[in-house]
Write a protein that binds this DNA or RNA. Structure first.
Length: 886
DNA sequence: TAGAGTGAG
DNA sequence: CTTTACTCACTCTAT
């Protein structure tokens, strides 16, 4: 026999409200990391979880009140009047309640002019007709009027996960009346909380007694003449209208015009993925742990369809066609050193997989891979390209890259795991790498090779389907050119740079290592002597104890976990604490030693003496590149000790040079362009010193000679601040001036550069309207907090809105230049090689005799990569090491 | 694995 | 009234 249908109906508004007040005394401990209160969500969650487990419904719905006005307020405006204002801490949780319900897989509904009660009443009646069992959950006892033989009503008591069940019998027992008589009782006695008046001097007790005798309000008035004379009878007669009105108000509608039917409410269990996201968002750690990801995987695994593919050992021409996808699997991040463990290719209809050696030794595979006319889709084209190139195959004809496409559509979608990206687009037919290979030290190819190839086949299918989908979305966003003309070709340029690598003089590093080790020892001894004991200087915690407890220096700043020992704090202590100078020196050298000397030595390729970084094209939210393993975009330069590290970066051959070109003030030039500020533009067009020019305008100086170095420094800080989305505090900290003075600088700046001010207002307004900002080339960044009620989140989003188009457009420009540069080098007979990009500069190595030509070429390409309304200016230098190319 | 700290543009 | 400049990666300690 089929399981009997059971409908669960929850009065969302009242339960959420109950949950909020049940946990109100702990309001402040229920907050997520963004400061959102979560107590109502938490209580509601636990109630639902419990009721689902107990009742195991086949259908479910959560009903909400739609708003303040309902058909009841139309005929009785005072209905529910006089209620205290809903606390903001409660209302801020309501949108997330809907997310929670999506996670539970429960439908929710609200209907204009009706209350949640009426939706529940109507559905309960419909379920009754179809002989469903019904469970109603509410915090409001009014709902008990719905009880029937097949309808029970759970009313929450103290807290929300505990409920009291009302059935026909229990109501009879407790009140001596039938459920429907509850409305008659309200008619007579009224209800304070809903502001239903009732009849004077009649309370619940009296009402019940009267109903025992007369059955209903109407029945009572039919026999009112039989009642013996009393004050009560008088009241009843005088207030007949009120009694009938009150009854009408208390009556739950059974025929509300719902746009949903029972069929819409089928309950299929939770969407574990969404629940996990919800728990993460709310910082519900205990729930998260309980519902570990293996459960999610199991759910998805169970729903995953079989994948058809052919594992092949001999490759034939028929297997390779135009418009296929290709995936080259490696189990570690670093594709320069990773081992390929499997290869798969094909289209939606036909998928092939083989062991790496089969493909690497196949001329047919090589011919197809290297055929630029044979179009290919990939997940991460740079990774794929490099892996194949290591085996003598030069991948060509790539027209799609799922990873890059997802990143351009939303810079937050930058996972290296295909399944994570697929999931974002509601594609679940591919497993995560972690579930197939495991994680950490246990990561390995599954024993059953079939599983590996099935996984790869699923990736091919996902790439085939999703690349097309995402390309359409790119087109909708006007991002096709950004993808096709910039990001995709750039991937190849970057691959070549990474593979070229930069030569590192490890002997020089070893020498420095020895010198620094000695210095560190000396400093260590001095610090211990000052402190009077030994301790771990690298531990901010231990250092804090020494400085602020043992030695008793004043605490200037605190961190979440204890005393702050950051540079700015230590610098303030320097005068009174001799130990501090040593600590600062120690920190500086320890950083150089561990990160730049030991760190770099570890990643030098022993055979070639080179390091091969990886440029990530999908990490930075602004569109910049990032560099990892090693990070070659933060090699020291500001302080001499660190700068010496650059002496170890040398050309690959003797008599070659390191050549570096950088854009001068590219971000301010971009600002001049996008803001169209006349004065800023003029300064660049006339080739003025921009910081001096700003200084003259902001400080009202007449002659260039009046700009002292100090004034120029201040103006420079203001210019930086402008690009970052300035605040008076930030500027005051940077310049060591008062907040008031900083504000004065900013005000004057905006007065003198009205176009910049206008731009900032416009870009923030646009971000608030559209939810995202864009760069010159339509790179897009969504700012979900831009309309947040939380000041911090909103301010941060506003500054980001100002900064991203500037930083991002600069990133766009240098990317264009890089693509053109590689092309220009290939077209020339130069041996010069592009090696690195550091946000606004490009680093090359080249034979000495090419330097002159190279400089002309690079300058021309970089300066004309993009035409702005102000000129772009490039400055270059070269030397026998990176250090000397300053 | 998070947080503090520091390197770069 | 809040808080306090944008973008990253790496190393270390401590849990």
């Amino acid at each position: 026999m089929a399981k009997k249908n059971k409908l669960l109906l929850i009065d969302g508004s009242s339960v959420a409200f109950r949950a909020f007040f049940a946990l109100h005394n702990q309001l402040e401990s229920f907050k997520n990391r963004n400061g959102l209160h979560t107590n109502a969500l938490y209580g509601f969650h636990n109630m639902i979880e419990k009721i689902l487990k107990e009742e195991n419904p086949t259908h479910a719905l959560v009903a909400f009140d739609a708003g303040k006005t309902t058909f009841r307020t139309e005929f009785y405006p005072e209905y529910k009047a006089g209620r205290a204002k809903t606390p903001r801490e409660f209302t801020e949780q309501m949108p997330y309640l809907r997310e929670l319900l999506k996670g539970f897989g429960i439908y929710y509904y609200e209907l204009e002019n009706y209350e949640a009660d009426d939706i529940i009443g109507t559905l309960s009646a419909q379920a009754d007709e179809k002989a469903f069992d019904v469970v109603v959950v509410s915090g409001d006892r009014d709902l008990t009027q719905l009880a029937k033989d097949n309808v029970k009503v759970d009313i929450t008591v103290k807290g929300v996960s505990e409920t009291k069940t009302y059935t026909v019998e229990s109501i009879k027992e407790e009140y001596g009346i039938a459920p429907l008589q509850i409305i008659d009782m309200k008619g007579l006695a009224g209800d304070k909380s809903d502001n239903i008046p009732g009849v004077t001097k009649i309370g619940e007790k009296t009402a019940l007694t009267l109903l025992q005798e007369y059955g209903t309000v109407e029945g009572l008035y039919e026999h009112i003449d039989d009642m013996k004379k009393s004050k009560r009878k008088e009241n009843l007669i005088n207030e007949k209208e009120t009694a009938l009105l009150s009854k009408k108000l208390a009556t739950i509608i059974k025929d509300a015009p719902l746009a949903i039917t029972l069929n819409d409410l089928v309950y299929n269990g939770p969407d574990t993925k969404k629940l996990i996201d919800f728990y993460k968002e709310m910082d519900f750690k205990s729930h998260l742990n309980r519902l570990d990801t293996s459960e999610l995987e199991e759910t998805l695994e169970a729903n995953r369809s079989d994948i058809q593919f052919q594992k092949v050992t001999i490759l034939t021409d028929e297997m390779f066609k135009d418009n296929q996808s290709i995936y080259v699997e490696m189990l570690t991040d670093n594709y320069h050193t990773a081992q390929v463990v499997g290869i798969s290719w094909g289209n939606e209809e036909k998928i092939y997989a083989c062991e790496p050696e089969v493909a690497f030794h196949s001329d047919i595979f090589k011919k197809w891979a290297e055929d630029g006319h044979s179009k290919k889709k990939t997940f991460d084209s740079k990774r794929t390209y490099v892996a194949l190139k290591h085996h003598g195959i030069e991948l060509k004809g790539v027209v799609a890259d799922l990873s890059l496409e997802a990143y351009l559509l939303d810079v937050k979608d930058n996972s290296s795991d295909l399944a994570a990206i697929a999931e974002e687009y509601d594609y679940f037919d591919v497993a995560t790498d972690e579930s197939v290979y495991g994680k950490g030290a246990k990561r390995k190819v599954p024993e059953d090779k079939e599983q590996l190839y099935a996984h790869l086949a699923r990736k091919i299918k996902a790439i085939a389907i999703l690349c097309d989908q995402l390309m359409e979305k790119l087109e909708e966003n006007q991002q096709t050119e950004l993808f096709t003309d910039i990001e995709l070709p750039l991937a190849n340029v970057l691959a070549d740079m990474e593979m070229a690598g930069i030569t590192v003089n490890s002997k020089r590093l070893e020498e420095m290592k020895g010198e620094f080790a000695e210095k560190l020892q000396e400093l260590e001894q001095k610090i211990y002597a000052e402190a009077g004991e030994t301790f771990n200087i690298n531990s901010p915690k231990q250092l804090g104890v020494i400085l602020f407890e043992k030695m008793g220096y004043p605490v200037i700043k605190k961190t979440k976990t204890g005393y702050s020992t950051a540079v700015d704090v230590l610098e303030q202590l320097q005068d009174q604490a001799p130990i501090v100078a040593y600590i600062l020196q120690y920190r500086q050298i320890a950083k150089i030693q561990s990160t730049y000397i030991e760190g770099l030595l570890k990643v030098i390729d022993k055979k070639t003496g080179k390091v091969h970084t990886r440029f990530s094209q999908t990490t930075a939210r602004t569109g910049r590149l990032s560099s990892v393993d090693p990070n070659l975009q933060n090699i020291p330069i500001r302080l001499e000790e660190g700068r010496k590290i650059r002496q170890a970066f040398v050309p690959r051959e003797e008599n070659w040079r390191i050549f570096a070109s950088d854009y001068s003030q590219i971000e301010l030039r971009v600002l001049a362009h996008v803001s169209d500020d006349q004065h800023l533009k003029e300064a660049f067009i006339e080739g003025q010193d921009i910081h001096a020019s700003t200084a003259m305008r902001v400080f009202g100086l007449e002659k260039a000679e009046d700009v002292t170095p100090n004034i120029r420094r201040q103006a420079k800080a203001v210019n930086f601040g402008i690009v970052y989305g300035i605040s008076d505090y930030g500027l005051s900290q940077n310049l060591g001036i008062s907040r008031k003075e900083a504000q004065q600088f900013i005000d004057t700046y905006f007065e003198k550069y009205p176009g910049v001010k206008q731009y900032m207002e416009d870009v923030v307004r646009e971000a608030k309207d559209k939810g995202y900002v864009e760069t010159l080339f339509h790179r897009r960044r969504y700012l979900s907090d831009i309309n947040s009620r939380n000041y911090n989140l909103r301010s941060f989003a506003e500054r980001t809105a100002i900064n991203t188009p500037i930083q991002g457009s600069a990133a766009d420009i240098i990317k264009v230049a890089m693509i053109q540069m590689e092309k220009a080098l290939k077209a020339s007979d130069l041996r010069a090689t592009m090696l690195l990009q550091v946000h606004d500069e490009l680093i090359f190595e080249a034979p000495e005799e090419e330097i002159e030509t190279l400089e002309k070429l690079v300058t021309d390409v970089m300066e004309h990569a993009v035409a702005l309304s102000v000129p772009l200016l490039v400055e270059s230098d070269n030397g026998k090491s990176w250090y000397d190319a300053k």
